[in-house]
Design a protein around this nucleic acid. Sequence first.
DNA 1: GTTCGTTGCTAAATCGGGTTAGCGCCCGTA
DNA 2: TACGGGCGCTAACCCGATTTAGCAACGAAC
Lengths: 357, 357
Amino acid sequence: MSPRRVTLADVAKAAGVSRTTASLVLSGRGRELRISQDVEQRVLRAAERLQYRPNIVSVGLRTGTSRTIGFVSDTVATSRLAGDMIKGALEAARDRGFMLFIGETEGDAELERLLLQAMQDRQVDGLILASMFTRTIKVPKAITAVPAVLLNALPEQPTPLPAVLPDEVEAGRTAARALLDAGHREGIYLIGAGPGLRDVPRESVAAVERLIGIREALGAAGVEVAGARTCPDWQPEHGFAATRDLLGAIRPRALICFNDRIAMGAYQALDDAGLAVPGDVSVVSFDDHPIASWIRPKLTSVALPHDELGRRAVDVLFTEIGRDHAGPDRVGEVHRVPMHLRSRESITPPPGVESAG
Amino acid sequence: MSPRRVTLADVAKAAGVSRTTASLVLSGRGRELRISQDVEQRVLRAAERLQYRPNIVSVGLRTGTSRTIGFVSDTVATSRLAGDMIKGALEAARDRGFMLFIGETEGDAELERLLLQAMQDRQVDGLILASMFTRTIKVPKAITAVPAVLLNALPEQPTPLPAVLPDEVEAGRTAARALLDAGHREGIYLIGAGPGLRDVPRESVAAVERLIGIREALGAAGVEVAGARTCPDWQPEHGFAATRDLLGAIRPRALICFNDRIAMGAYQALDDAGLAVPGDVSVVSFDDHPIASWIRPKLTSVALPHDELGRRAVDVLFTEIGRDHAGPDRVGEVHRVPMHLRSRESITPPPGVESAG
DNA sequence: GTTCGTTGCTAAATCGGGTTAGCGCCCGTA
DNA sequence: TACGGGCGCTAACCCGATTTAGCAACGAAC
């Protein structure tokens, strides 16, 4: 297909100078090293004419860098979150002239080891270890020579690696306040986790933290959680089952669903029970999954800042790369990215309460 | 963080031999070149002890390869399709010891040019140009020295590049047959495109091809499309509007929705009109988006083979890489990946017809 | 006329592997 | 003792760019 790549030697030859001179001119150091105008022009023109582009691999060999970072996640595809996180990371990396290697471990530790090695063999300048749902992970020992950042994950053991996560506690407060602001004081039920801090899906950091935030904000207003139903997995069918079960016993005024898929199931159960959203029951949720604006009435949700998480991970990674040598005793900082309320149509004041603040 | 990478020279030194000898042993050519057992063992043990791993960058410099392919798409995040396509590509690449660079152009030609250059500067062995919805694209001139494959896209002008796409025409036939097999003969309406081949969203290959397949399969059974409503964009709200409009005029027996998001809107409009799915109206759709199994009744849909598309693109790319030199006049083959019906709960025989097929 | 300084450029080493060509030693044979 | 040949290993070069050290030519100063 191609007549070989143009190299620095080609440019030098075409300009009638040595490789050294060509290199100096092209790296902009020609002036300070007193290369004559004439030679400078000849080199620049030759490079232009031949469409010369430096071979990054070669530079990488010398400098040990590759202008590349590795993004390793447990799953790329599972949720839309993944794509948006990658998108944010991609943009932040691009701004710095870096490319992204993508790798997927599927939760397999051996695969993860191989992948991390393959990336380090390719001289990546840094690694992002991402999880697709917020949880605690074992930091693999295979990371040896390279700065790294945890994304959407906390280390099981203390490590010097920084972590970037959504601010789930504040998100919990935000969801609770959305109901409080509308005037709700009673009949607030949780679907997905709670009411106790132990009533959460295994490994889920998000569940615990959201719950803490919810209870804190309600408590500060002197409001009690009226009750809760847990879901083994945060899927629509479990949200449906949990809500149907709840409606068999009582009639809530408001639901805080732990994510949008659960909320979708809750909508279905409320519909079956002849209850209208938000007329009879207000609903607030988390994640701001696309379906939040597809279901009717459109769902008010506290958005996961997907892009921003990816972007921040790259930013933090770069400060990490800039840092000389991490003291071995350093404990990684935890960076929290705010989650914002997307107000839509699923919350109204309870009957008999005028629209509040 | 690290005490420098272990190089071949370190291993050679530790084993008390030359770099050449160490290289021969480690590349398995020691036997044929009569390296003694003793030396072989010394080298292998030193490599093991020092945890030696060859630096791929260095090899790449010599051979001009990088065991890396570039995956450039217009959008990574928009749909779940993206993630799954990448996942399939990732797996196929991993099987061959290759890594994937990911890049996103956001439809910006200049960004695309820069990205392709950045990837070629990093010596990628091949490129995948992906589109997130099936359409025709301009093949950028920036691809010069590297084998490439189009994924989910057709070239506007004939090119030597092969393309990998879902078999949308057959998918159209499959959707139509699903209704025919249930006994439907009348009152079949289309939502999203049609009835004419020009009544499609701009640039959408999928729309045209699905329509062709639908009309062909219905026609073969002597059945006419009863009518259609187009949607400017295939989103739930447009599906809702189009269906509501249709229901204002007539009462359909079956709907073929052009994708699942449209079908979701159609469900809402049918519900508003007091029509039950599938009791009053059967619905079949395309894509098999996650929501297809979240909405009630669960939606029968012809699945886009996301993973398989990504995998096939990598496979085709490798045969392309293996090919010596593409004749300049060669026209790229088009590979079609089958789309399969996911039968769920949204189709029943029309009133008065016993279960057929 | 020697020494020093400046100017303008280049040879050679470097990064980490792979590869080609060939060196030194030992053994057998004449 | 001299020569030929196989054995076991290594020196040296290559890939493409950067960088260090230094060379040649010329002018000025003593």
